Computed example of a mutant assay.
Amino acid sequence: MSFNIMAETEENVLLQPAAHVCTDEMEVQRLANNQQLREMAKALAEFKPTRHCFIMDHSVQVKVLEKQHSYIKFSHQEAVYYTFLDNLSTATQPVTSVTP
Rank of each mutant, 00 (worst) to 15 (best):
N12I: 10
E27D: 05
A45N: 10
D86Y: 10
M56H: 05
H20T: 00
S89A: 12
Q77P: 08
H76Q: 02
R51N: 14
E27V: 00
M1Q: 07
E66I: 05
V21R: 01
T9H: 04
N87R: 03
K48T: 14
N33V: 11
V64N: 01
P49L: 03
A19L: 06
Q35G: 06
E25Y: 12
S70T: 07
A43W: 12
F3H: 07
A7E: 10
L88H: 01
F54P: 03
M56Q: 07
E39V: 11
T50V: 01
R30P: 02
S59L: 06
Q77T: 06
E46R: 10
A91D: 15
T92F: 13
D86R: 03
C53Q: 02
N33R: 11
T50P: 00
T9C: 09
M1I: 08
K42R: 14
T50G: 00
M26H: 15
A45T: 12
L65Q: 01
Y81E: 03
N12V: 11
E78P: 08
A7G: 05
Y71T: 03
T90N: 12
T92D: 15
A43R: 15
Y81H: 01
N4I: 09
Q29M: 05
C22R: 04
R38L: 13
A43G: 12
A7Q: 05
R30F: 04
A32T: 00
Q68Y: 10
A18Y: 15
Y82S: 01
N4R: 11
L85N: 09
K48D: 04
V60A: 10
F74Q: 02
N4G: 09
K48E: 07
T83Y: 00
C53F: 00
T9I: 12
N4E: 11
P17D: 03
F74N: 03
T96H: 08
V64F: 00
K48I: 14
R38P: 06
F74H: 04
L37S: 11
Q16R: 11
S97T: 15
E46Q: 12
L65R: 02
A18T: 15
F84M: 02
M40H: 15
E27Q: 04
M56V: 13
E11L: 08
P17A: 10
H76A: 00
C22D: 06
D57I: 10
V60G: 06
N12W: 11
T90I: 13
A43Q: 13
Q77W: 07
H20F: 03
